[in-house]
Design a binder for these strands. Structure first.
Lengths: 173, 173
DNA sequence: ATTGATCCTTACGTTCACGTAAGCTTTTGG
DNA sequence: CCAAAAGCTTACGTGAACGTAAGGATCAAT
């Protein structure tokens, strides 16, 4: 049976071990992330009680780990990025309500755009560098393959494209 | 004046501090890399004597750090990659000599190709993931910008694209 | 020969990002 | 209701990648 109910919805809540497995990490890591402020302290929990998470937290956590991996950020750096994402979520929430004056509305959107732009810049930069590296490697690869083909051409189908056995072939020289 | 000469060429050799600055790192890091086997022990140095490096070492070191950063590798992982690059350098050296039989020649080239392919795979994978992330961000950015434009359109040129002042505009409601 | 500046080795210290263990409480399946 | 499983807190341990300090040796220029 599901551990508990969110008191209002009907999606079965997850315990820290479940969340860990679904996000491919460990409970310790989750607690640690909470400790350093990367994850919000699971709502309304009288210290000592078990943490409960919603399904959405799985995605959130995976996203956090993805950013960490891909961008090689420290948890501290991640925190600032996530703070920005939090802010964007705030904005989305605010914007859903109808009673926001258009001026304020615009302000919020501009802010969100700022956050995204900064993050995008970071990602673009990194992506570009990686692309460069990839190109360089591809170039080298091409050159090597060309040399292999040239070699094969000179010795007229003496050996197949398989990894050559130590067999000796009556060749040039 | 240059610290010393390589005994045969005339490019002024670098001391560890110079190398560090040129590669934007610290002497400690260089010594550490040497210690763990990432960098070769600077040639023929009676322990106690100063390390001397050639200009080429600058590029090599920068490349090492670039790989570390971009791929987020541990020094241990880097070591295997660098070992492969070493091997490729070996191959290049061997291939320069004329007296290598074509069979052996081909073997060497295939080996090099293998190394490159493995590295390329790694880089490609990473690059793809980053590209995905970038796309997602770009999408979000588009959506936000669209919402801003829509907002601007509705309130007929009431405010410019500058960050809006807290001035109130006679708007909807 | 002397003197700063830089370098050497050795060794202990540090930060990050968790792992691991202990002792206890909460939760859950039966 | 009760035991086993999972979780909680607290705290100490760990590996990677260096930083920093001590005490002495080297090096380039004077």
């Amino acid at each position: 049976m599901p551990p508990s109910r969110p008191a209002d919805a009907d999606t079965p809540m997850l315990r820290i071990g479940d969340l860990a497995k679904l996000a491919e990490t460990t409970p310790r890591t989750i607690r640690y992330y909470e400790e350093v402020g990367l994850l919000p302290e699971a709502a309304e929990r009288p210290s000592g009680q078990h943490r409960l998470y919603s399904r959405a937290e799985v995605e959130r956590l995976r996203e956090v780990m993805r950013l960490k991996e891909l961008l090689g950020l420290t948890l501290e750096e991640l925190k600032t990025i996530l703070a920005a994402e939090e802010a964007r979520a705030e904005v989305r929430a605010q914007l859903k309500r109808e009673d926001v004056p258009p001026a304020r509305r615009r302000e919020l959107l501009e802010e969100a755009r700022g956050h995204i732009d900064r993050q995008l810049e970071l990602v673009r930069h990194r992506a570009a560098e990686l692309a460069k590296l990839q190109d360089e490697l591809s170039e080298t690869r091409k050159r090597v393959r060309r040399r292999i083909r040239e070699l094969d051409a000179r010795s007229e189908g003496a050996f197949p494209p398989e990894p050559p056995l130590p067999a000796v072939i009556e060749g040039g020289s």
